[in-house]
C-alpha cells in the first residue's frame, strides 16, 4: 500500500472513530438476547412447517406445469419482464 493511501486510512479511521464514539449504536447490553427465538408468525407448530401441520393439508402431486405467476411481479412497474439492460 502506498504512503498516500496509508495516510488516507489513518485520517479516515481517526475521523470515523471520533464520530462513532459520539453516536455509538445502542449497546446490546441493555437488551436481553433470546437466542433461538422464532420470528413473529413462525413460532407455532402449525406455522413452522412441522409435520403436525402437514396432516391438515393434502398435497396434490402435480405432474404437469401449467401455472402462471399472478403475484405482485405482474404489478410492479406494470410488467413481469424487467427492463432490458
Amino acid at each position: 500500500m502506498s504512503a498516500t493511501s496509508k495516510t488516507l486510512l489513518v485520517s479516515a479511521l481517526s475521523a470515523a472513530i471520533a464520530m462513532a464514539a459520539v453516536s455509538a449504536p445502542a449497546a446490546a447490553a441493555d437488551k436481553e438476547k433470546c437466542y433461538g427465538i422464532a420470528m413473529a408468525g413462525k413460532n407455532d407448530c402449525a406455522a413452522n412447517g412441522h409435520s403436525c401441520a402437514g396432516q391438515s393439508k393434502m398435497d396434490k402431486d402435480g405432474t404437469e406445469w401449467k401455472y402462471v405467476a399472478k403475484g405482485s411481479c405482474t404489478k410492479m412497474n406494470g410488467t413481469l419482464e424487467p427492463m432490458k439492460k
Binding site: 406455522a47 412441522h50 409435520s51
Partner: peptide, 17 residues
Amino acid sequence: AVYRNNYRVGLMEMLAL
C-alpha cells in the same frame, strides 16, 4: 402416504415462510 405428504408439505410451508 401420510408421512410423505407431511414431509413435503412441511418443507413447502417452510419455503413460504
